[in-house]
Amino acid sequence: MEIYLLRHTAVNNPHKLCYGQSEIDLATDWANHFTALKQKMGPSLRGALFYSSPYQRCKQLAGFLSDDQFQIDSRLSEMHFGDWEQCLWTDIDQPVLNAWMADFANYQVPGGESFVQMHGRCTQFWDELLALPSDRIVVVTHAGVIRSLLAYILSIPLEKTFQLEVEYSSVTKITVAKQQGCYQTVNYINR
């Protein structure tokens, strides 16, 4: 089984808003990035099952790549930043932001969730995905979700996940050998 994790394309966020589970427009050149991703993925798209986060920035790409044949799963949502959603990062109360940065894995954002909570829903999705009979799956999601899944696959402590760079429009490929007890190999990250 081949599983491709795609991060959505760049967003239009000139003011550097915190936007985890907020809708935000894609950058104006999104169509060019969609086309480039489709070319990059090439034959890997054929016959694939497609899953998407429920946010427009992911659904739009999933629809383009799959001819609108994709499933939405809310567990693929980015981290919920609660009271910080749509705030400028510089406007967030500095002591509270510092507390989150000191322990982002466990600290629950006011009105939102912790990375550990997000990780729980992401890994539940992943375990269900591995049970599917499909040979090829494409998942269109967010950087936090991809980091969470890579941490799960590679047994990386959640505290280290921000050391994994996950760029806009990037592709991460995982190969799963079910005949070997569901052995998972990360073929590449951020391509």
Rank of each mutant, 00 (worst) to 15 (best):
F81E: 06
K16S: 11
G42K: 00
S74M: 09
Y55A: 11
W84V: 00
D73P: 15
Q71A: 04
V11W: 02
S77I: 02
R46D: 07
P14V: 05
I72K: 04
S66E: 10
Q21E: 14
L61F: 12
P54D: 10
L49T: 15
H15Y: 14
A48G: 11
G20S: 09
S77M: 10
D25M: 01
N13R: 08
S22A: 09
H15K: 15
H80F: 00
Q60G: 06
G20H: 06
E85R: 03
E23I: 03
F64A: 02
C58A: 13
F34A: 04
H80Q: 01
D67C: 10
D73Q: 11
S77Q: 04
K40V: 01
I24L: 05
G20Q: 09
R46T: 11
W84E: 03
K40E: 08
A36R: 07
D67P: 09
L37S: 08
D25I: 00
D29M: 00
Q86Y: 03
P54C: 04
N12H: 13
C58N: 12
A27T: 08
Q60C: 06
A48F: 03
D73R: 13
F70V: 04
W30L: 01
C18S: 08
S74T: 15
L17F: 02
D25T: 10
D25H: 06
N32H: 14
Q71H: 05
P54R: 04
Q71M: 02
G82I: 12
D68P: 10
D29V: 02
M41K: 05
G82E: 10
K40C: 01
L61S: 14
P43I: 08
V11L: 08
Y51F: 14
A62K: 06
S66H: 05
Q69L: 07
F50W: 07
M79H: 05
D68L: 02
T28G: 09
L17I: 01
P14M: 02
T35P: 07
M41T: 07
G20T: 07
L61V: 15
G63C: 00
R57G: 14
D25V: 03
L88N: 15
N12R: 12
M41C: 04
K16A: 09
D29S: 05
S52H: 13
C58Q: 12
Q71Y: 01
Q56S: 14
Y55D: 04
L45R: 11
P14N: 07
D29I: 00
S52D: 12
H15M: 11
L17A: 01
G63Q: 02
E85P: 06
